[in-house]
Every structure is written in C-alpha cells, then in structure tokens.
Nucleic acid binder design. Structure first.
Lengths: 187, 187
DNA sequence: TGCTTCATGTAATCTGTTACATGATTCA
DNA sequence: TGAATCATGTAACAGATTACATGAAGCA
C-alpha cells in the first residue's frame, strides 16, 4: 500500500505526467521505492477516480498526449495520515541470502561469481549515493525537508555499505571453500 | 521466483508436509524468506506437477490427512542451477524511508511514534538473532553448511544492527524538529 | 513519406494476502 | 458427544512484472 503514497509525494514535490513520474522513479524517489510506468499509470487512474489527484485541465487530453496531474486537498490529507499510521516493518526477504542457504545444501559451485557480481553492483550503487550526497547536501543544510531527505539518503548509503562489507566477507569464505574442495557440501 | 527454491531447500533439509513447512517458514528459513501456508500449498502443487518433488506414498492421501513431500533429482538439479544463476539484486523498496520523505513534504506529525515503534521491533529482532547465534553457532563450527548458515545469520544481524542505529539517529533528529516547531514543513 | 522518440495505455500472468471452508484427530 | 487443534485446501483479491498496442510530434 505504498505506491499511491509514493506518487502523492512525488506529485506534491512537482505536478507531473505519468512518464515524468516514471523517470523520477528511476532516480530520486526510485532509490527507495521503485515502480514501472505501467504501475504508475494504473495507480494514477485509481487516485484520480478516488478524488485524491486531478488532471490539470489542458487543451488536448487524448491518448499520446501529455497529461499532467496535481494533488487535491484530499490527497494531501491522505498522505499526512499515512505518515503517522502504524505499519509494521516487513520481514527480510532476500533471494541472495536464500541462495547462500541453498548452497549449503547443494554445494557452492557458481555462487562465487554471483557474489562477485553483486558486490560490484552494490559498490556502484554506493558510489552513486555518495556522489548525490556530496552534490546535494553540503554541510550547511537548514530546512526540515532537506534534513529528512538527507536522513533517507544516509539510510541508503548505510544499507549499501552493509552489503558491500558483508558480501566481501562472504566472498572470502566462499573462495576458501571453492579452493579447498570440489564444491560438494561437506556435511 | 524464489519461493519454489526456498521450498526445495527446506525439503532437502528435511522432507515435510505443507503445515510443517509453514511452521519452519516462521523460524529459520523464514528469517530471510517469509511465506504463508496458502502460498506454500499452492507452490507445493506446482512443484509436484512439474516433477520436482513428490508426495511420499502413504496410506491415506485425503483432505485433512498429513501429506509429506520429498525432493526428486530434477528438483535438486533445479536448485543447484538456481544457486549459480545470474539474478540482479532488487532495488531498495522500503515504506519507512518513503514515509520519511513524505514527512518532508506534509510535516512530521506522528512520525516520531512510528520511528520509536520500529526501533523497538528491530531491537527485538536483533536480540532474537543474537540469541540464535549464541545457541547454534559456537566458535568451532566446521562443516561448509554451518559456515554458510552462519554467514546468512550474520547478514541478518548486521541488517538489524543497521536499522537500530539508523532509526536511533533519525529519531533524534525528528524529536528535535517536533520540539522546535508545530510540525509544518519548514520549506 | 518513413523513422524515431515521446507518451499513454491494455492484457496476461505471476506473486502475495486475506478470509473462509472442511476433514481428521485428540482428549475431556 | 463436543470442543480444540491439526491439517489441507478454495476463492477472491491486491500488487507487481512483462509484453505488447497505439497515437502524437519532430525531423530527415
């Protein structure tokens, strides 16, 4: 139930069309809530139906034509309420951790390459975030919005830092295993 | 595409019925891949259809009767292949980070309580993992499977550690904001 | 005119969630 | 017998993914 709120937030920051939103979901907002353009169009339809947003009146509202949306008061109210609503964190659900566990049962062949690849991807993501931090958040930030955005970005940076250090450690151990024996589980 | 592999892994560790699997998904495997019993039953049906697992022949295979499954060679092969398959990490998708961002736009009222609640939940989860580590992983572990399982658990511990420290920091800043002003965004 | 890009959308499918139905077993 | 629990399952829906369809605008 977070996609509609992600869209409301993005639209409050700046009224946009569906495709513009999709592009912003590839950056900025998308760094912690991803969505495809199909999801976005569908959700825009629902939000409009529900009276939380409306299309800006324009000359040509047909297919293939740009269609911009803005948030209505009801939409802002819903977003405000959601900010304070009790919602439990979801349990961890990570395919890579699961694969490590599976490797314990069927052997570690091929796992090393995957760990290496993931490590590279996370390092890259970490570099991207760090760049953004240096560019957008100079030491003297003052507005509340800036501080919250910086906190969120900091969360992303620390998460990627966790993954790079954990993957490096895991890789070292798996390398040892692969070197040591044929790859069959030792149990 | 991870649920079938989670089930294969669990069944290789120990042939089980649907409900037994569901229970194990509330512990152990479920610490990094959760699933409800409905998902599990549906998936067991598919896996059996596909010839990756089979029901252990028993006297009474009716409704309400326990039905145990074991992994067939094709299932083990599929799991082995999956372990080495290239699969990119999914982008971060976290509702709490999103809510912080939304709070930057509509104000931080009510957010503090949620942060506090999440902090408590993550601390509890961290304590649970740490207990398991102390109980199940004494210093002299030797089999490959043990080492991999310990790595996975370590990942969970470090993830929860990240959340507790990040949430504590976020909470401190949001407290400051709530104390300072009425809660309206400062932009 | 035809190619490319921008933009909106439909359809099908898969995954996950919630609520409920039903049979078997145990034990008071 | 009747209540509680164990166990398997159905149904309906919500959310996410993938592939494809279609129209508009710019430009060579």
């Amino acid at each position: 139930m977070s996609l509609p709120h992600a869209i409301l937030t993005a639209l409050l920051e700046k009224p946009s069309s569906g495709l513009e939103l999709a592009r912003r979901f590839d950056k900025s907002i998308g760094y912690f809530w991803s969505a495809t353009h199909q999801q976005i169009y569908r959700e825009l339809g629902k939000l409009e139906q529900a009276g939380l947003i409306r299309a800006l009146p324009s000359d040509a509202p047909t297919r293939g034509q740009k269609k911009e949306y803005e948030v209505l008061p009801a939409g802002r109210a819903e977003l405000t309420a959601w900010t304070a609503r009790a919602e439990d964190p979801k349990p961890i659900r990570d395919p890579l951790l699961l694969r490590m566990r599976a490797a314990g049962v069927v052997g570690v062949q091929g796992l090393e390459a995957e760990l290496r690849r993931h490590l590279a991807l996370h390092r890259q993501q970490l570099a991207t975030y760090t760049e953004i931090e240096e560019r957008d958040f100079p030491p003297e930030r003052d507005t509340e919005e800036d501080r919250l955005r910086h906190l969120v970005l900091g969360g992303g940076i620390e998460l990627e830092t966790f993954w790079t250090t954990w993957l490096a450690k895991a890789l070292a151990q798996v390398e040892e295993m692969t070197a040591g024996e044929g790859g069959a589980p030792a149990a």
